[in-house]
Simulated assay, not measured.
Amino acid sequence: MSNPRAAFCERFGLDLPVIQAPMIGPKPALAPAVSAAGGLGSIACAALTPDGVRAEVERLRALTDRPYALNFFAHARAAPDPEREAGWKRRLAAYYAEFGLDPDSVAPGPERAPFDAAMAELVTALRPPVVSFHFGLPEEGLLARVREAGCRILGCATTVAEARWLAERGVDAVIAQGVEAGGHRGLFLSDDIGRQVGTMALVPQVVDAVDLPVIAAGGIADARGAAAAFALGAAAVQVGTAYLLCEEAGLSAAHRAALAESGDSDTALTTVFTGRPARGILNRAMRELGPISPDAPAFPRAAAALQPLRAAAEAQGSGAFTPLWSGQAAALARPCTAAELTRTLASGAERLR
């Protein structure tokens, strides 16, 4: 019987079937440390300019010659909605008053740009070994340029239907993202979060549905979770939250403390920080504004008005208005180096099989 993990590693040039999830926030040292250890380090590019992406790739290449992934968003841009955005500011007015802030001084929020022609041009120039996409895939012309650059392509699915959709469009592997995962849901065929599927139910169904390597993501923070995913047919695991406690991640003190104190029921899906469902540790903003808010502007426009509140609270050492992204298995994570975690996930899982 063939070993899907060995086949995946051979195809992607890896020593270990472990992928560090792309996450906006951790320091640039994380991805090269994972790649150097034999896994696949990922650079989150949606919040970067092309020059920013190039700089991170150059930094990684200076530290390791091992494979890495660039991750991009593939969402459709939301049209400006001044009325809804004004209503969101009114919803936040009491918090502005509490911190002595002027709601009329809100600057444009952080951009979360979809993959476009400029990024396709950059991919053509950089030729990264792997490119992954969240929220579906870009239009075929842009996707063809990624293929022509010789990149392996990963797509994220949160349902079997999304996995089949990705397979029909020629991805090289499917990331099966269970509802336990931290950060943004990768859903794109439906926005019904009530029908999202858990990792251990999703992975074997995706394995049966597509003739491609399947990468398990969501709720995997130690070797036991990786072993369970491999037993269900996964060719690799993608891990995010556990890497946030690695020293290379350089996470804020408030976020690290929240992760260290988090239990199994301390996270929820929320739209208050960006306008799109994402899992994070419950804090004041989530409890009082949501967690799911019909007032939040469409992704990513909800973020702008929260930025001043986040900065003011963080200046006081509080994460009350910070998106504390985390999966449901944060309590299983332990502080260590990225290399230690990468190797332990793989070797420990093999011993448990």
Rank of each mutant, 00 (worst) to 15 (best):
P22E: 02
L202E: 12
A7N: 14
R279V: 10
Y96C: 09
E162S: 10
A6P: 02
E180I: 09
S326I: 07
I43H: 04
G317K: 13
A304E: 12
E350M: 12
A227V: 05
V239T: 06
T158S: 14
L63G: 01
D15L: 14
A339S: 14
R287S: 13
R224A: 14
A313Y: 11
A125F: 01
A226Q: 09
T199A: 09
A311Q: 15
G290Q: 08
E83M: 12
G52H: 03
T271A: 08
P294M: 06
E314I: 07
R164P: 01
L251H: 01
V179G: 04
L306C: 08
A157S: 06
Q328Y: 11
A329E: 10
G109M: 12
E314S: 15
R54I: 03
S252Y: 04
L245A: 02
G141Q: 13
D264E: 15
P50D: 03
G348W: 04
T241V: 12
V174D: 07
Y95R: 12
V179C: 07
A44G: 06
V160D: 07
Y95E: 15
G155D: 06
R59V: 00
A21P: 03
T158L: 05
H255E: 09
V272I: 14
D222Y: 04
R169W: 12
P213Y: 12
L154E: 02
L16D: 08
A296T: 11
V130L: 02
T158D: 08
R279C: 10
V237L: 13
A144M: 03
L30G: 00
A242Y: 11
R164M: 10
Q196V: 15
V171Q: 07
P138C: 02
H184V: 02
R66F: 00
A268Q: 11
G348Q: 04
G240A: 11
P32C: 00
A313N: 08
V210H: 05
A118H: 03
G100D: 06
L92F: 13
D104Y: 05
V146I: 15
A74Q: 05
A320M: 11
T241M: 09
S326E: 10
P294N: 10
G109F: 11
A33L: 02
P17E: 01
R334M: 02
S35I: 00
G13W: 05
A231K: 06
T158N: 11
A125W: 05
A29W: 00
L101V: 05
A236P: 04
T199S: 12
R77A: 15
T267Q: 03
A303V: 08
L60K: 01
F73A: 11
R279T: 13
S262M: 10
A29Y: 00
A254S: 15
E340K: 01
L245E: 11
A313I: 10
R334P: 05
G38I: 02
P335R: 07
S293P: 11
R5C: 13
P308M: 11
P103C: 05
L341V: 04
E140M: 01
S262L: 07
R256V: 14
D222W: 07
E83G: 10
E148S: 13
D172F: 09
V160H: 10
I193A: 10
A330G: 08
G327E: 12
A234K: 08
G182W: 07
E85I: 08
